[in-house]
Amino acid sequence: MIGGRNGYTPADDSPFANRIFDPAAVDHFYDAPEQVKRMLMDYYGSTNYSVVDLDVIQALYRRMYQEKVLGQERLRFMHASRVVDLVEDADRVRVTVEFLPTGERTAFEVDAVVCATGYRSSDPLQLLGELGEHCLRREDGQLQVERDYRVTTGGDVRCGIYVQGPTEHTHGISSTLLSNTAVRAGEIARSLTHAAAPALAG
């Protein structure tokens, strides 16, 4: 494992941290100023991003330590490092790694390289074709989304367009969690039902 940290970061699944996934927390996040939203995302990143369960980390460390003591090192962690070169042969890959504090480089051969670099959500408007041009964006280019997950559109659009997932910038870190899908779907269903209900004469 080659990375900038000393190893893996434990996932924060403590009860207090998990409150960030409650529907009430989504309300608070949605109404918060942008700088507060960024602060909250920084605070709670360890609940969902680049983190590993603590028991897995401990098992990996024990295995690494045992292999080192026995002189049979197969599991190796190269911290504060980055890959600077890859050369692929017929059945091997030559990897050059730089240790960032000193600039020292180490080359070795492996069977395969897995790049676990994360991902960025795709733009959901790509699925809408020309209709996407009627969806409004914020100043930072992100999609404008209402609290009920409805995309904000121009006045000429009469239908509702709802999104599930790419709303972290407006609804917080729970937006991408599968465990919250039912809650989001329920809110969207209520919004659709309310929008379709006939107006009652007073």
Rank of each mutant, 00 (worst) to 15 (best):
N180C: 14
R19S: 03
R137K: 01
T9M: 15
V113K: 10
G45I: 05
V84N: 09
H134L: 06
G160Q: 04
D89G: 13
F99T: 11
T9K: 04
E104V: 04
G202M: 11
D13S: 15
D148H: 10
H169W: 05
L128W: 00
N180M: 15
Y119P: 01
F29K: 01
L128T: 02
E109C: 05
L128V: 04
Y149M: 09
D12S: 12
P198C: 13
N6F: 09
A107V: 11
T170C: 09
F21A: 03
T9F: 12
F108V: 04
L75R: 05
E73W: 06
R158S: 11
T106M: 11
D91G: 13
D140Q: 15
V36H: 09
T96Q: 03
Q164R: 05
V26E: 05
C135D: 01
L177H: 00
Q72T: 10
A116G: 13
P15G: 05
V183R: 06
D42E: 12
E130I: 07
D91K: 07
F16Y: 07
D111M: 11
L177P: 00
V36M: 13
R150I: 09
F21Y: 15
R92H: 12
L192D: 00
Q164K: 09
V36R: 11
Y43T: 14
V84G: 07
V83K: 00
D111T: 08
T167H: 00
G129L: 02
V97L: 11
V26N: 00
H171V: 02
R184Y: 02
V157P: 03
R158H: 12
E67V: 11
G118H: 10
P10V: 05
S191M: 01
M78P: 02
G132H: 02
A32K: 02
D148T: 10
R105A: 04
A195S: 14
E139K: 14
V157Q: 08
G155R: 06
I161E: 04
T9E: 08
L75G: 00
R184S: 03
H171Q: 11
P198R: 09
P10G: 10
D31P: 03
R184T: 07
T106V: 15
